[in-house]
Each structure stands twice: as structure tokens, then as C-alpha cells.
């Protein structure tokens, strides 16, 4: 927060659209504190029955992976086909397997 404002911090909003589903990131908003953030999220992101539950996280509290580290972080699983059922072709046609 800079000193020009009373600027309200940024919050990330996650909405669960119905029971049994995960909360999904819907967007963000500004609010002075967590209680108002929750209420603002209700007003902003569930005007059309979009949700049954909300999560609010202060944007600064999100820990994100570094996009520049994509290689070391996310490419290792490539080539490890044996983690997938489709790798095992010899058992094809065997029932209930």
C-alpha cells in the first residue's frame, strides 16, 4: 500500500460452484479486510447463483512457481509414459483390468 491511499489490498476469489466440485479461481477484488473481502466476493462473483462456497486469499499470500523455471519444474514428467495406463499394451483386451 502506498501512502496516497487508504488503498484497499487485493484479494483472490475462489468459487465452488456446487458441492462435490473444487473451488476454482474466479478473479480478484479490493477490500479493506478479509471479512469485507468475503462479502464483496459474494456480491461480485455470485450474482447469478454461481456458487455455494467461497475462498478468499490475500493476493500477497499466494506462492507461485516461477514461469522461467518451467523446464526444471514441469518438464520432468514428460517421457515417463509408464505412469499412464495406456503404456501397458500387452494386457489390452483382458477384462476388468
Amino acid at each position: 500500500m502506498s501512502e496516497i491511499n487508504s488503498g484497499w489490498p487485493l484479494w483472490e476469489v475462489f468459487v465452488r460452484s456446487s458441492r462435490g466440485l473444487s473451488h476454482v479461481h474466479a478473479g480478484s477484488l479490493h477490500a479493506p479486510d478479509k471479512d469485507m473481502a468475503l462479502r464483496n466476493a459474494r456480491d461480485l462473483y455470485t450474482r447469478r447463483n454461481e456458487g455455494v462456497s467461497l475462498w478468499i486469499v490475500n493476493s500477497n499470500d499466494i506462492v507461485a512457481s516461477d514461469p522461467d523455471a518451467k523446464g526444471q519444474f514441469f518438464e520432468s514428467p514428460q517421457g515417463k509414459d509408464y505412469r499412464h495406463a495406456t503404456y501397458y499394451t500387452k494386457s489390452e483386451g483382458v477384462k476388468h483390468l
Binding site: 468459487v15 460452484s17 456446487s18 466440485l21 476454482v24 462473483y45 447469478r48 454461481e50 456458487g51
Partner: peptide
Amino acid sequence: TSASATRVTPG
């Protein structure tokens, strides 16, 4: 990508 968060039903 935001389908699940924009499901719309009038209730």
C-alpha cells in the same frame, strides 16, 4: 476456462 465459476441458474 472459467465455466465452473460462471454457471448460471436462476434458481
